[in-house]
Structure formats: C-alpha cells, structure tokens
Design a binder for these strands. Structure first.
Lengths: 219, 219
DNA sequence: TGCGTGGACTTACGGCGTAAGGCTAGCCTA
DNA sequence: TAGGCTAGCCTTACGCCGTAAGTCCACGCA
C-alpha cells in the first residue's frame, strides 16, 4: 500500500472522477467508457479498482455521505439534527444524482455507517431512549430523503422564479377539474416570495417539535 | 377512437404490460425489447403508442398514482390523510420500482395531478389556509416518499425476520467504532417484534399531530 | 539477470434505445 | 366495386452500453 510504484489510478481517484463527471454531465452520461475517457484510460482498466459499475455507484454515494456533517454527541440534539439536515441538503443538491441513487443501494459504505452512528449517538446523548432514537432517526431521514427527492426533481435552480417554473410545468397541462391545484398554484406558489425550499425548514421544525415533545415519553 | 379496427395494441395495454413486467422481473429487466416480446410484438411497434421509453416510464408512474386512494373533501382531514398515506404505501410497495422512478420524473400525468388536487382539496376543506395546505402537503409527501425510499431499499419482504436481515446487511461490515449503531441493532432492531414498517405510522402520527396543532395558525 | 506480477490495453459479445423506412390489411371515397 | 390512404406492424441498422477473456509490458525483487 505504501510503496506504490506506477502512479496510475487509485480507487479514490476513480471515485472522485466519477463524482465530478456525474456532477457535470449527469448520471446518465456516466458510463464506464466515459469515465475512463475522462481519466485518459481504457474502460476495462477501471475494473482493477472497482468490482463493477454497481460498486462504483456504491462508492460514489458513500463519498457524498462523507460530506455530510456528522452530529456531535456533545452538542444540543436539536441544533445538531438541524445542522445535519441542512448539511445533507447542501451535499445532495450539490450532487443531485446521489438522491436517485440512495434507493437501489442496499450495501452502505463506511462513511454512511459512521454518519448513522453519529446521528444515533447524538440522539442518545440528548436523552432519547433506544426505541425513541429509532423513531426519531426514521422520521428525520424520511423527511430528509423525501424532501430531496421532490426538490431534486423540480426542474430549476435555486435562484429561479417559481412562477415561471410553475408555468413551465403546468403550462401544457389542462387544469380543468383541478380547482385546488389551480388555486394553490395561482394564489400561492406562483406568487413572488414563495420558495419550495422554505418548506424544508417548516417541516423540519414541525418534526423537531414533535420529537421534543415525545423525547422523554416511551412510545 | 370508437371504431378501432385491428385489435392490436393500445397505450393502455402497453402500460399495463410494462407495469406487470416491472413487478415480476424488476425495472432493470424492462427494456423496449423485452416488453415487446412480452406482448408478442416487435420493439419498434411500441413507438406507435408511446413516444419513447421516458414517456413509457412516465405513464407507468401515473398508473401507480391512479391506484392511490384520493382523499375526500367530505371526510375528516386527519383520517383521509392517514388513509392516503397507507394507500400510497400499499401501492408503492406493490410496485417497488415506482419509488425509484418518482424522482427523475418531472412531468406529472393526469392521475397524479388529480390525486394532488384531491389532497389539497381535502386539506382546504379541513380548515387549512392555502399556505398551510402547502406546508402540510410538503411535509406529508416528504415523509411518505422518504419512508418508502428507505423501506423499498431494505432487501427483505414483509414477513421476514428483522434480525436475520440486519445480520445480512451488517454481517460483513466491521462494526468497530460504531457503538451506537451496534447497540441499536443488537438491542432493538434485531429483537423479535421490531418492524421498520411500524415507524411509518409513528412518523405519520407525529406529523399529523403537528399539523393539527398548527392548522389554524398562520405560519 | 531474469522473473513474477500488477496494471494497463485489446478484442469481442450480447443487449440496449431508437432513427429510417418498408409492407399490408382494412376503411373510405368515387 | 376499384383505388388509394393510412394505421399499425415489421426489418434493418447505428452507436452506445457493461463486462468476460486474454495479451502485453514495465517495474521491483531475487
């Protein structure tokens, strides 16, 4: 491991290049061939560093997890969980492809496991029982992933005008017979100042409040 | 439309066959060629009924949405939202491939739109303001999708013993330095009686409680 | 000096989505 | 009833994909 001879590729270099390529051109454009081209190498050479494409994707997801702030057991659980939520959102909107990869991946990498361990550790330190920590973990992660699944599939970037986007999506849709959707779009979502992103914090606060309330009960 | 001549294919038949095939063999096994084979037809014939594979997938997702119970404005909002949550979980665990398709799909089909309209309508009828309905909608959907993303990627079926599954996942992982994860696995998740599925209702109740509490405020 | 080995390359296979175009059965018009 | 139109299928072909199998070479060590 220490006396590496020919510089060549490493697993880390391959993963980093794959993440870079997926960020730039989208996951669909990431093939073993395109990745190899990006690295100035032939496709089959990659198989010396990753077992196959699945393993490559596993590694990429784990690399993203490594970017997420791991909660500290020393900190206030509520503050730490909120920080984790925001950090995860930052990481996953920076690597949009990762959200779609999180399902379909059933073998978590080391960074993923360390992260989850830290989350549970913080909750335990915050006074949650084991059972309560499991509840909290599940509901927080569900909200996190679910929000990101929705946000990432919204076809626009942070700064965009929500009204224009809504018109884009709904423009060629017949809105007859969809009174409530129409009302919400016209009178709320398409109004200046509305940002779907704000729903992230609203939902997070609701959940944290609920957890606070249940923290020391046993259900 | 009425005087159809050669029986042949229809868009509906194509979509139904695609759903059936994906249910049976998984989404990865669904190609235009395999679908055509399943229908006793050549691959290119499908393009008379579906624009391309993306459109096929869009249609499949919409077909799944059509299976989900649409809330009634007449019913109690809390009961209706819970019913929708459970119905959606049933539909999406019956068509596991659909969960992974929900992101990446940015053009909702008619059934999807009708469903969302019904959700908002029920909330409005339950006394939620427009802004509050948007909040409720976002947090409920986030929880729903996020939970399902996690549940679907768990490699086991409903009846399975959670302990065995956890061992499967974590068996070949070094648990050194992951004390909290280990504790939770050993003392809680792997105990008989624990079911991740139960976290669905726990989280749902937490969210519904929070919404109830905020229903008539204006934040 | 010679050899083993690790890390690259080459070739090849079967499958993919789909562009382009061909064939024919049945209907509509004259 | 004859003729042509068209919808709905099929055929062919292209350039991708992931990867199994095998080759080749430079280096570090004996």
């Amino acid at each position: 491991m220490s006396g590496r001879v020919r510089p060549g590729l490493t697993r880390e270099a391959v993963l980093a290049a794959a993440v870079e390529l997926a960020d730039r051109d989208g996951l669909a454009a990431l093939s073993m061939r395109s990745l190899a081209r990006h690295l100035g190498v032939e496709a089959m050479s990659l198989y010396h560093h990753v077992a196959n494409k699945e393993a490559l994707l596993d590694g990429m997801v784990d690399a993203v997890f490594a970017e997420i702030h791991a909660p500290t057991a020393a900190g206030d659980w509520r503050v730490e969980m909120a920080a984790r939520h925001h950090s995860a959102r930052a990481a996953l909107t920076g690597h949009r492809w990762a959200v779609g990869l999180m399902d379909s991946r059933s073998s978590p990498g080391p960074a993923t496991l360390r992260h989850h361990d830290a989350v549970i550790g913080c909750l335990r330190a915050g006074g949650f029982s084991i059972a309560m920590s499991a509840h909290a973990f599940a509901v927080l992660d569900s909200h996190l992933y679910g929000f990101l699944v929705q946000e990432v599939s919204l076809p626009f970037d942070e700064g965009d005008d929500m009204g224009a986007v809504a018109e884009d999506i709904l423009g060629d849709v017949p809105m007859d017979g969809l009174p409530h959707l129409t009302e919400m779009a016209v009178e709320h979502v398409m109004q200046p100042g509305y940002a779907f992103a704000d729903e992230f914090d609203w939902g997070l606060e609701l959940i944290l409040d609920g957890l606070e309330r249940r923290r020391t009960t046993d259900g």
